[in-house]
Each structure stands twice: as C-alpha cells, then as structure tokens.
Simulated scan of single mutants.
Amino acid sequence: MTTVAVQTRVELLTGRTWTPVCDWDQLAPGRGVAVLLPDGQQAALFRDANDRVHAVSNRDPFTGAYVLSRGLIGSTADGRVYVASPLLKQRFDLVTGECLDDETARIPVHTTRLTDH
C-alpha cells in the first residue's frame, strides 16, 4: 500500500485566478520570501507567529527597491502585524498595506489561501 503525503500550498489571487506560489512548509514564521507573479510583479509572502499568511507588494514605495520580503516582521501594541522595510525602516500593515509611519503611503495587498494538493 502506498501512502501519499498531502502538502499544503499557498496561493495568491492574481486577477481572477488563484496562483500557487509555494508550499506552506517552505515558509518560516517571521521570515519573508519573494515570489514572482504571472504578470511579472513581485509579492512578498510572510507567515506570522500565529501561522497566518500575508502577501503584499515586494516593492518599497519610498525607495523603489524590491526588498520588503527581507524586512522584519513585528506587531504594534494593538496587534497590527507589519513588515518594516530593511532600507528606511517604514512599517507597513500586512493586512491593509497602509504605512504606519506615513499615512500618505500604502502598498498593495494580495489575497491568500491555503489548499491541499
């Protein structure tokens, strides 16, 4: 008898299509990874300390560099999970995309889901 291991996959909604981007076990809590989307854009994918998956644009709007996946994850006193840019340290809410340090800035947020395959 053969046993098939079920893997959990992370998918992002791109347009009207769900796009597989990586396996769940490839995401380490508190660390980000960059993924290339079908349209050529980059997303920064994060698994937080509560095992929730977040995806935002990988582009830092203040510098134009594609570095947010290398940023540090943290949370505010009221529980908002954010990524701090590794360059200028601005913090971006991983749920809303708004900059916690400059209300005029925001980054795109991607819808995520987990599926078994």
Rank of each mutant, 00 (worst) to 15 (best):
V56Y: 01
N58V: 10
F46M: 13
D93H: 09
L88G: 08
T63P: 04
H54S: 02
G71I: 12
D93R: 07
V95F: 05
L72G: 04
V95M: 15
V83R: 00
V53A: 01
K89D: 05
E98R: 14
V56L: 01
V67I: 02
Q90K: 12
S75D: 13
D93E: 06
Y66C: 11
Y82N: 00
V67M: 08
T63Q: 11
S85L: 03
Q41N: 15
E98G: 06
L100T: 07
A65W: 09
Q41A: 14
E98P: 05
N50H: 15
Q41P: 04
G64A: 08
R80V: 15
D60Q: 02
D78A: 06
F46Y: 13
T63C: 05
R52N: 15
C99W: 02
Q90I: 00
G74V: 04
L88W: 12
L45V: 15
V83F: 05
A65T: 00
T76N: 12
L87C: 01
Y66T: 13
T76D: 08
G79D: 11
A65H: 04
R52H: 11
T96M: 06
V53Q: 09
T96L: 12
T76C: 06
C99M: 09
L87N: 00
R80T: 08
A77G: 12
R47D: 01
T96R: 14
L100R: 05
V95I: 14
P86W: 06
L68D: 06
R47F: 04
V83C: 03
V81I: 15
V67Y: 01
L94V: 10
A43T: 13
A77I: 09
Q41C: 09
K89S: 15
D51M: 07
T76L: 10
S85I: 04
D51Y: 09
N58G: 05
G64M: 05
A43P: 03
V67D: 05
R47E: 08
H54Q: 03
G71T: 05
D51I: 07
V81L: 11
A43V: 06
T96S: 14
V83S: 12
R52A: 11
F46C: 13
A49P: 07
R59W: 07
D93N: 14
